[in-house]
Each structure stands twice: as C-alpha cells, then as structure tokens.
Write a protein that binds this DNA or RNA. Structure first.
Length: 296
DNA sequence: TGCAGTGTTGCTTC
DNA sequence: CGAAGCAACACTGC
C-alpha cells in the first residue's frame, strides 16, 4: 500500500513528531516483525537511544539512532506507523492512557486499524510510536548504521531526488525489455513506485501498460519522466492515497484517491475521453487504463 | 458460504 | 536465463 508519496508523508510527519526523542522501551506481541537481531537483543540495543534523523529510500523508512544504530522499517502492504500521546500498547492491546488529552476527532479511536497494533516504541515525553499491521508483512531491522548502504544497494533511481535527471532515467530504462508497467514498479530500476501510482503515471503519460519499454519513442519517454515527477509530487501534496487502508501517523487518510483517474475505476468512464476504463492482469497484478487514451 | 482479490517483496519453479 | 507462481497473513466484497 504505502508507495513513495505515502512513505514520504510518514517520514515528513515523523520528523516533526519524534526527532530528538529518546526510546525508553519496546513492547511487541509479534516478534517476527523484528527481522534482526533477535527481539531480546533488539530491545536491549534500542533502549536508551535517541532518534537523530529520519529519511526515506524507496519505500523504506530509515531512522538513525544514537550509538551508530539505524532502524530500517518497511511497511509492505498494510503497515502503519502511528504517533500518539493518548494511546499505549499494553498486554497485546491498544489502550487509552488515563487522563491523557486526545484530539476531539481522534481517528485512532474509531478506525479499525487500532486492532492491529503489534509493536510500540515507548518514547520520552509520554509519546508512543506504534506499528499496526493487519497482514503482518511489515519488517523492522536494527542494524549498524555503517551497514545501511548494503541494505539499500539494489535500489534504483529515486525519481524525486535532486540529482534525478531525464538522462539517468533513460539510461535506467535502456536495458529493460519487459512491459513498461512492470518496469516502473521494479524497485531496482526506479525506487518507490507501486501498483497505484504506476497506473496513474501511465494514464497521464498516455502509455499503454503493456507497451514494451524498448519501443517507447523518445518524446513519450520524456513525457513519462515528467509525469512520474508530477504524479508523485501531487501524491505527496495530497498526503498520499487511502484507496485502501493507508493512514498517516495520526491515523488520518490521504486525499490522492479523490483525484485518481484510472486505478480501481474499471468500467467507469475515462475522465478525458469518456471511454470505459479497462482492467487487465500484468504479472499477476491488476492494471487499469483507458484503451482509447493509452495506445501501445 | 466460499473463494477471488488486495498495496509488497523475494524466493522457488519451470 | 527470465518469467511466472507462490508464500508470508488476514480481511473485504462479490
């Protein structure tokens, strides 16, 4: 679920909310979430550390801690990070902290994602950084900071980074033979794009998802590069999409789903030409597109 | 009621 | 070798 714009929104919010905080303790009822080291070591090593910096690479959240340790978090399909001063994770359940001040319309109180909290970092100043995950696919690692580059070595171009250029993009795609939809989602080629944004990007660029990457003409490729930037930036502006269950660190929905044009709109009219949006399978995933606007 | 489908990724299989 | 399938898990919707 969380793709680049959602992960970026989470990272930006976390920077505001938990930077400089100390991690006092960790509570967890699904230790498989912690991929390394063992939970016992994890707890021991992380307790007492300070959150020094928070960044994103691809769909990973990177939290630099004091003592040269780094937390690497991947939310996969249904993971969420929540920051709250009025909820705590105790005896396997999310519980309201007595006498704590909650926001009037606290979404955590009503949203059913509150049933799926499996881990909580207890921070100083009465804050909790919690991970909820219905499907339990999320992964957390605690590694030595110097090792981080190895973990991130295989990722491709960051489409929104300052040094991303059309030439680099073109080069990244130059030896790709498959269909463009799958290439866009290949994290080794481009970092951060998933099923939803790839559909929206291809619609904006007027490219058929099954178009062979090597056959895309130069002008279309330029357009594609521009639209990747436009769509992802719009996603961040709208704080991500909650087509499904994405929520930000307060438990609130994003707004990008209100402007999406093709994803999960099978059978509905195309915003631009009125034709019917189609859904096909590509690599086992659903691809949505307008057959009139997007030609091979 | 039951089964296909779901945002991700990486491993296994053919 | 590359592409396809599947597993990790649990819920929703048809």
């Amino acid at each position: 679920m969380p793709e680049l714009p959602e992960v970026q929104t989470i990272v930006d919010d976390l920077r505001q909310k938990v930077m400089g905080h100390k991690i006092l303790d960790v509570i967890c009822d699904w230790e498989n979430l912690i991929r390394e080291p063992s939970f016992r070591k994890f707890k021991e090593e992380i307790s007492g550390s300070i959150i020094e910096d928070i960044k994103r690479r691809a769909k990973n959240i990177i939290i630099n801690l004091s003592a040269s340790k780094t937390l690497l978090i991947h939310l996969k399909m249904t993971g969420h990070l929540l920051v709250s001063s009025c909820w705590e994770f105790k005896r396997g359940k999310l519980r309201k902290i007595k006498n704590a001040q909650c926001p009037e319309d606290d979404p955590i109180a009503s949203d059913k994602m509150n049933q799926f909290v499996h881990l909580s970092f207890q921070l100083d100043k009465n804050k909790n950084l919690m991970l909820s995950d219905l499907r339990k696919f999320a992964e957390i690692r605690l590694v030595n900071t110097e090792k981080i580059p190895e973990y991130l070595a295989s990722y491709g171009l960051e489409p929104l980074s300052k040094d991303s250029t059309y030439e680099k993009f073109k080069k990244a795609l130059s030896n790709q033979k498959g269909n463009i939809k799958q290439v866009l989602m290949d994290q080794k080629v481009l970092a951060g794009i998933g099923n939803i944004y790839s559909d929206e990007i291809l619609f904006e660029a007027k490219i058929h998802p099954k178009q062979k990457t090597e056959n895309i003409p130069e002008n279309k490729l330029k357009k594609l590069y521009q639209e990747i930037g436009n769509v992802l930036k719009r996603g961040i502006e709208l704080r991500g999409n909650s087509v499904s269950d994405y929520r930000d660190t307060e438990g609130r929905k994003g707004k990008y789903q209100e402007v999406k044009k093709v994803y999960r709109r099978e059978g509905q009219p195309c915003i631009e030409c009125g034709g019917k949006i189609k859904r096909i399978k590509i690599g086992g995933r659903s691809a949505h597109f307008c057959p009139k606007c997007q030609r091979k």
